[in-house]
Computed example of a mutant assay.
Amino acid sequence: MGALAAVGLDPGVLGPGSGVRRVTLPDGRAAVVKRGPSVAAEAAGLRWLAVPGGPPVPEVYAADAEWLVTREIPAGGASAAAAEEFGRRLAALHDAGAPAFGAPPPGGPADAWIGDTGMRNVPVESWPEWYAEHRVLAYARRAGLPDTAVFDEVCGRLPELAGPPEPPSRLHGDLWSGNVLWSTDGAWLIDPAAHGGHRETDLAMLALFGLPHLGRVLAAYAEVAPLAEGWRARVPLHQLFPLLVHTVLFGGGYGSRAMAAAHAALRA
């Protein structure tokens, strides 16, 4: 049975093409319906991120290779208390761990998605090796920038720039502020690009485009799971991945921001 049939929806009512729609299911539940090539990876990610004590994620009502139906989360406002709770819960999510850097969620495809571009999840034991090959260089090669030498230099020095070794964390993977949904009962995570990675990457993404009460989020996180010395200086290193993704997707000034982050990482 397909995802729509499982929840009693008629695909003809939803219309053609990919996209996101808010619907009321026949049983009265408010839901979000997505159609597109990324839904199988997103469904696996949502299920994997639903850990005890972690940030809440929308329940997956039904999913297949084409459609994803999830619970609709009512919007609310960000508060200092909710931000602190989010920080503690994010630490619990990261602590749930992953089998390896680059490991996909159980049942999730290796060829996954971040936004509207592909993202390959390939398990690797070493974070510097994995981040260099499958995150920085993979997107620098596709970004169309006139000079990528600075990214090669960063990747060549990653073992010394990466900070103390850490075990793989369970990452949301696309944790910019738009994917933190402030609801009436706190902060929820939506639209993941989940994989095993370095926890500082999720935290660096939160800072990339601004998050309400970010200082409180980070302080509460660090109370539960102290961060390694020098983590603030490594923020540009971890922002290279999302900045290069944005360069691939949107071009514009993101390429120069990615290059500036690379130079900042080398100076750390």
Rank of each mutant, 00 (worst) to 15 (best):
M1F: 06
A5K: 12
L9I: 13
P16F: 03
V20D: 13
R21D: 11
L25K: 02
D27N: 00
G28V: 00
A30N: 08
A31Q: 13
V33D: 02
A41E: 12
E42V: 10
R47I: 10
W48K: 06
W48E: 05
V51I: 00
G53Y: 00
G53M: 04
G54P: 02
G54I: 01
G54A: 06
P56E: 07
P58M: 11
Y61Q: 12
A62C: 13
A63F: 08
A63C: 15
D64T: 10
W67A: 02
T70F: 15
T70K: 09
I73V: 15
I73M: 15
A81C: 08
A83K: 02
F86Q: 06
F86N: 07
G87R: 00
A92Q: 09
L93Q: 12
L93A: 09
A98Y: 00
P99H: 02
P99N: 03
P104S: 03
G107Q: 10
P109L: 08
A112N: 15
W113V: 11
G115K: 00
G118Q: 07
M119T: 10
V122D: 03
V122A: 06
W130S: 15
Y131C: 12
A132P: 08
E133R: 14
H134F: 14
G144F: 01
L145D: 04
P146E: 00
D147I: 10
F151Y: 14
D152T: 11
L158H: 00
L158T: 01
E160P: 06
L161A: 11
L161E: 06
A162H: 09
G163D: 05
E166T: 06
E166M: 05
E166P: 10
P168K: 03
P168W: 01
R170L: 07
G173R: 09
G173F: 06
D174H: 04
L175D: 05
S177P: 03
G178V: 08
L181W: 08
S183A: 15
T184R: 15
A193S: 07
H195W: 01
E200L: 12
M205Q: 14
A207M: 07
L208A: 07
G210M: 05
G215M: 13
V217C: 06
A222H: 08
E223T: 14
G230F: 15
W231K: 11
R232S: 13
R232I: 13
A233S: 10
R234M: 06
P236L: 13
P242E: 11
P242A: 14
F250E: 00
Y254S: 05
S256V: 11
A258P: 06
A264D: 07
A265Y: 12
L266R: 12
A268Y: 10
